Simulated assay, not measured.
Amino acid sequence: MKIFISHSSRNKDYGNLLVELLRNLGIKEDEIIFTSNVAYGIPVGQNIFHWLKSQIEEKPFVIYLLSEQYYESIACLNEMGAAWIIENDHAAIFTPDFDLSSKEFQSGALDPREIGFYIYDEERVLSFIQLLSDSFKLSNNTVLISQSVKKFITEIGKVISGLKLNQQHSRVPITPKREKIETVVAETISKAEPVQIEKGNLYSKFLGLIRVNKLKVDELLLLHYIIDTSKVKLMTGWQEEQEVSNITEWEKINDIKDILSKNYPGVLNRFELRGFTEVSAVTSHGNPKEITIKNEIASKILDLPNDVTLKIETIVKDNFYEHPDEVEEDDGLPF
C-alpha cells in the first residue's frame, strides 16, 4: 500500500514537509507518491495520466492537501474524482488560508462533514499519525515521533511566515466614505513621528507593523476584538471552538463580517510567529489551551496611539455588513 499526496504544485512546500514527516515516521521511499518531487514522482518515460490512474486504481491512502489553488486546478479535481470513485481511504489536510466555507469545498466530491485538519494543528497531526499506523508500519520510537512532529510544526510555521512576507497587499477600491477615512489616517500619520522599529522592543515592533500595513485584515479584527472585549487571554487547542463561538456572537452583535471567526486558528498562529503571544495555560498533556498577549503589548493595548487606533477602526468600518436603507411603503394615505 502507498500514500498518494494529492496537491497543487503551488503548495509543494507544504507537501515536501509532509513527505519529510512521513519518512521520519518510517514510511519507505517507494510507499510515497508525491509528484512535485522527482524522487517520489512519475518514473521517466511514463505517461503522466496513465501512471497516476494506475496508482490510484491500486487504492493508495490518499492525502488531500486542500487549498484555494487545489480547487483552481483541473488536474487536482480529476485526481480527487478518480480517487473518490474508487473509494480510497483518505485524509483531508487544509493549508493555513483555506476557507472551509468555500462553495467549492462544500459542494465538492469530498464530504465536508468528514473531519479534516489544518496542517499546523499539532494535536490533529498526532491523531493523523495514529490513523496511518492502522495501515502502515511506523516507528515505535515515541521520542522520535514527537521530535519529528515538533520539527514539522516549526517548519510549517516558517513556510507560513515566508508566504505572508511575500504577499502583496491588494488595495480595497476607494469609496467616498473610505476616502474620507483614509484622508484622516494619512493626515494623522503625516503629523506623527517617523516609524522606527527598535530592535528588541516588542511594542515598537507591534506598532510599526500596523503602521506599515504588515498585519492582515483578520489580525486587525482580532486586535479590535481584544480591545472591545478587554480580554488579552484567548482560548486555543481543545478550547478553541468556545473562543470561536464567542467571536461569532461578538460579530453578530456588532454586525461585523465573519472573517475573524473563520480564520481564528490562522490568526493565532501568525500572532505567535510574530512573537505577540505566549502560552498561559496547558492541558495535563502539556498542550496549549490558552494564550495571552505578551505584557509589553497588553499593558498598552487599551491606550494605543491615535494613528494606530485609526488604522484599526478603518479596517473595522470596511468590514461592517452593509444593509440597504429601509424605505417605508406608501400606503396611499396623505398622512
Rank of each mutant, 00 (worst) to 15 (best):
E182C: 09
G157N: 12
K12L: 09
K231Q: 10
S8K: 11
S204R: 05
I63E: 01
Y118V: 00
E104M: 15
E72P: 00
H285Y: 11
I85E: 10
P265I: 06
I315R: 00
I42H: 03
L209F: 12
P60Q: 08
E278V: 04
P324D: 13
Y71C: 06
N254V: 07
S6N: 09
S107G: 01
P334Q: 04
G116S: 03
E322N: 08
K216I: 07
N269W: 11
F105Y: 15
V143E: 15
T314F: 00
I174D: 13
K12V: 12
G286Q: 04
E290F: 09
I256C: 03
I85N: 08
Q69I: 00
E326K: 00
V282Q: 01
E72N: 06
I301G: 01
T292A: 14
G275N: 08
N254G: 05
L260K: 02
D99V: 04
E72C: 00
F94N: 08
F4T: 08
F61I: 07
Y264L: 04
N287R: 05
I297M: 08
L100C: 11
N269T: 11
I312W: 05
L138N: 12
H50C: 10
Y120Q: 12
E179C: 10
T248I: 11
K53W: 07
A109Q: 04
S101Q: 14
F335L: 14
N166L: 14
L65D: 08
A83C: 06
V184T: 13
Y203L: 11
T95Y: 09
E29N: 13
T142K: 15
I48Y: 14
K28N: 12
I85Y: 07
Q69A: 12
H7G: 08
N37S: 15
N213Q: 11
P194M: 03
L310G: 01
I27A: 05
T292D: 05
V244K: 15
H7A: 12
A92V: 12
L163F: 12
K289P: 00
P194V: 01
K311F: 01
K199N: 10
K231H: 09
T283P: 01
S135M: 10
E329A: 11
S73V: 01
F136V: 08
S170A: 14
L144G: 02
T283S: 15
I312Q: 02
E326G: 00
G332V: 04
D30H: 14
H50W: 08
Y120K: 07
K180P: 01
F206V: 04
K205Q: 14
T314S: 11
F98P: 03
Y40F: 15
Q239R: 14
S230E: 13
S161T: 14
I174Y: 10
E198R: 09
D330M: 06
D134W: 08
I297E: 02
E122Y: 02
S170R: 13
A298M: 03
D218S: 15
L17Y: 11
F335Q: 10
W250L: 03
L260R: 03
R270K: 15
I63Q: 05
Q55N: 13
F276G: 02
E187W: 07
H323K: 12
K137P: 00
Q46C: 04
K262W: 01
L223N: 05
K151Q: 14
L21V: 10
Y14L: 09
W84P: 02
T314H: 07
P112E: 04
T175P: 04
R270W: 07
I74F: 03
V172S: 05
